[in-house]
């Protein structure tokens, strides 16, 4: 995906959800992580990297700075569940359909 990321719109963004992506942002930043969501207002990406155990590191890449987004891998069921459970209260866990 070259440039124009903020213009893609929700139907395109949601296709990247639950995928391992590589994001180039600014002049010289590159981030990898599982895409949790894209804010439809600012086009910012939320990337999650699971560490050992429960913890995870989260990167938010601002939509205006995104240069390129590349899909590296699809999530398996375990990672999808873990991703979607990251910020949801236990009572209404719903799955995103990519």
């Amino acid at each position: 995906m070259q440039c124009g990321w903020p213009l893609l719109g929700p139907l395109q963004w949601i296709r990247y959800v639950n995928k391992l992506v590589k994001v180039k942002a600014g002049k010289d930043e590159e981030h990898r992580g599982w895409l949790l969501t894209v804010d439809p207002v600012s086009a910012s990406l939320v990337l999650v990297n699971f560490g050992e155990g429960e913890g995870a590191s989260v990167q938010v890449v601002m939509g205006h700075a995104v240069e390129e987004v590349e899909v590296l891998q699809e999530a398996n069921e375990e990672i999808t569940d873990r991703l979607q459970a990251s910020f949801l209260p236990p009572r209404n866990r719903t799955r995103l359909d990519p």
């Binding site: 719109g9 929700p10 139907l11 963004w13 949601i14 959800v17 949790l36 969501t37 894209v38 804010d39 439809p40 207002v41 910012s44 939320v46 989260v58 938010v60 990251s86 910020f87 949801l88 995103l96």
Partner: peptide, 24 residues
């Protein structure tokens, strides 16, 4: 139909983002 689909996608994405913001 497409508009509705788009709005649904928008709301799902935004809700997850807001929950993420809350947790920060």
């Amino acid at each position: 139909e497409q508009l509705q689909e788009e709005q649904h996608a928008r709301s799902v994405l935004r809700e997850t983002f807001l929950r993420c913001l809350l947790s920060i």
